[in-house]
């Protein structure tokens, strides 16, 4: 297990948020090789002790490093430093939507849920909201020729756009509703792709055998500094393609 130098400590007098300070310290540990690729980082409790911060601060900082590709979580084993592919200098060349699907394919949309819930698991961290915030939950199934191909679950903090609860999300994309109807500009999207195996409920929704390979896409939408939507999508491997164009600035 790797124990970092104690000289890099959190400065509580700084106006910067604690988790951002911790993020920068841990990132430096990785970048300067103190934490080498493939090594396991200290567990949450140890990091709390070393840096004298709360579990929430550690969780936020680690989640951000996972999001940025510095760390990788292995269920039941721990969190490890991973080889990072540098992507600085790349930018979306086209306008972005929730998902850019292959053009020319007729998609049928079914709204499976449009309701409200409280955040469970690490949804509060993913949306960067307190645990007692209400969340609008929208579950959408996309079909091609009556075959389910894509299951999307969108989570939006209720306070960001309360009328969304009653909106028609079949005829309008969330992106369009936010930007055009409610004047909430989306300024940044982070996309994370992963290949995984389907769980029982996911297999059922997509008409797959249990433990079938699926493509998982996680998307974080921002308006300025505020995160406003988190979408978790799973796609069958055999139908439909995502397209993303990137261009060097």
């Amino acid at each position: 297990m790797l124990i970092p130098g104690k000289d890099k400590m959190i400065d509580r007098d700084k106006p910067q948020k604690l988790y951002i300070q911790l993020y920068n310290i841990l990132k430096k540990n990785i970048e300067n090789g103190e934490w080498s690729v493939g090594s396991q980082i200290p567990i949450e409790e140890e990091l709390c002790k070393i840096y004298e911060v709360s579990k929430a601060t550690v969780r936020f900082a680690v989640l951000e490093l996972v999001r940025d590709g510095y760390l990788m979580r292995h269920q039941g084993k721990g969190t490890f430093v991973c080889k990072r592919v540098k992507h600085e200098g790349l930018a979306m060349s086209a306008g972005f939507k929730e998902l850019m699907l292959e053009p020319g394919i007729a998609l049928h949309t079914q709204i499976l849920a449009q309701t409200v819930m409280m955040p469970t698991d690490d949804l509060d961290l993913k949306l960067n909201v307190p645990k007692d915030n209400h969340i609008i939950y929208i579950k959408i199934l996309r079909l091609v020729d009556n075959d389910p191909v894509l299951l999307q679950e969108a989570y939006i903090p209720y306070h960001v756009c309360p009328p969304l609860l009653e909106e028609d999300v079949v005829g309008n994309s969330l992106f369009e509703l936010f930007e055009k109807k409610y004047g909430i500009p989306i300024t940044k999207v982070k996309n994370y792709f992963e290949v995984a195996y389907s769980k029982t409920d996911e297999s059922k929704s997509l008409g797959l055998q249990k433990d079938s390979p699926i493509l998982v896409l996680e998307q974080y939408f921002y308006s300025g500094d505020n995160e406003i939507i988190y979408i978790h999508s799973i796609k069958r491997p055999d139908r439909l393609r995502f397209t993303i164009e990137l261009e060097k600035k």
Binding site: T115, V116, M117, M118, D132, Y137, Y158
Partner: peptide, 11 residues
């Protein structure tokens, strides 16, 4: 209604 936590029935 938002004085109270909300959950869907499948929780």
């Amino acid at each position: 209604v938002f004085s109270f936590p909300h959950i869907p029935y499948w929780f």
